[in-house]
Write a protein that binds this DNA or RNA. Structure first.
Lengths: 113, 113
DNA sequence: CCGCATCCGATTGGATACTG
DNA sequence: CAGTATCCAATCGGATGCGG
């Protein structure tokens, strides 16, 4: 959607806007991405960083990210089990979008208050 | 979220990222925004531009936009009734975000920009 | 420690029909 | 023309408990 002339007249899954939106949508998703932007983290480290996020939803977000190819899961053998999650090249490409989300949201809240 | 150090550890509504995400989330929302980016349109003109969007959901999106101060509703008297929707200054500020969504989504899907 | 299974309440999107 | 009122199926987020 480089200009105002859009390509589709309905929400097709292949639309780039839909793809990007799917990558950052869902409660907690942007926060999980923010944590992983700093480097690989284990499941437990993510739970520490986001204490009020339930294990189920965290697992859902992580599988969602890995299914989209935005993150990779690396299981380390031994006990206790350690699994680290790392953003892929594709996942790291979301950083400009996240900053743009922050910038736009800040501008909007500056106008409405 | 200018860098990796975020300010919150849970999805607070006041977070700029949440505010921006709320503005563009929801099925059809980005398409309605795209149509309005070209200038004011009436309810019926929006229905023409997005034929498979039901009246209920369109009305929901439009009230959502107006409630957030992103668009204004102008009812013209007479018959037949005409109501035009126009993006506000705040609404127009979403344009860079929409282009960034497109750019990021295109990059993720393997296309080049 | 990791993360899936299950259950549940709340929200969403869509179809249809109706009013000013 | 511009919505609102119902109804309904599907999805979502959260809590809890179990298994690898």
């Amino acid at each position: 959607m480089p200009d105002a002339r859009g390509a589709t007249n309905r929400p097709e899954p292949g639309c780039p806007v839909e793809i990007a939106l799917a990558a950052v949508s869902g409660r907690w998703t942007t926060l999980v991405l923010r944590e992983l932007m700093g480097g690989p983290l284990s499941f437990g480290e993510l739970r520490e960083a986001l204490p009020t996020l339930s294990a189920k939803v965290l697992a859902e977000r992580l599988t969602g990210l890995t299914d989209r190819g935005l993150a990779t899961r690396e299981t380390h053998p031994g006990f206790p089990p350690r699994t680290s999650y790392r953003l892929t090249e594709a996942g790291l490409r979301l950083r400009p979008l996240l900053t743009e989300l922050y910038r736009t949201g800040a501008a909007l809240s500056g106008l409405t208050t």
